[in-house]
Amino acid sequence: MTATEMVRADNVHKSFGSLEVLKGIDLVVKPGEVCCVLGPSGSGKSTFLRCINHLEKINAGRILVDGELVGYRERGGKLHELGEKDVAKQRRSIGMVFQRFNLFPHMTVLDNVMEAPCRVKRESKAEVRDRSLSLLERVGLGEKVGNYPGQLSGGQQQRVAIARALAMRPKLMLFDEPTSALDPELVGEVLDVMKGLAQDGMTMVVVTHEIGFAREVGDKLIFMDGGVVVEQGTPRDVITNPQHERTRAFLSKVL
């Protein structure tokens, strides 16, 4: 079953103690769309992304991925939190790429990619191996499969991280500032891989400061500030013709 909405967030609220970080986020991302999330530091972009795969529990509202409630089950009009196993099952189909790569340093590149399909999905090792090798080939790292992450450049590590997420055959990919920790000359190679993914029809939610990427690849752009979505629309509209003062102020600093 493929829903007409890959991600749907309704009135999502999230607080850390008394600090309210998300104050009612609404968002719809359709299958195959690339949604870019823009906003100043501390506006809650990462937190929102982490709510989508239930790394953070939301305090109010609801999030659906591919028509399925994330982290909760609805019974008698009430939400009940899912157990660890069920949440883990939902996360299998949602890939996530982090700012700091978070590759497993004690495993080779190939083992990093093979780990989850083998251990979590219990797929056959030979099959996973073939798929992982071709994924690594696709992100341009066919030569590095036997290396450890510590022996790779940041850009290479991030591409491995993308391959690792793709190995689970996710229907949705979340990117949290995937190029922010990279040297400028390494940003392009990672963005190229992401562009390829978008062209192949992957649904993606990308927190980024790469305006060029957002404009070229994004189908949709949302601008967040202070825990709310201030403005959303097509990247072209939002970037060239921002309606809100805060968006304008932010863009003037970024562009």
Partner: peptide
């Protein structure tokens, strides 16, 4: 395994850069 001296030093350097907000292309956050 995976923690050669050189690899470790490079990782630490990278960590420091990330701590300091990373070398963000084009923009500084905030």
């Amino acid at each position: 395994k995976g923690y050669g001296a050189a690899a470790k030093a490079r990782q630490r350097l990278r960590d420091i850069q990330v701590e300091q907000g990373g070398r963000i292309t084009g923009v500084g956050e905030g």
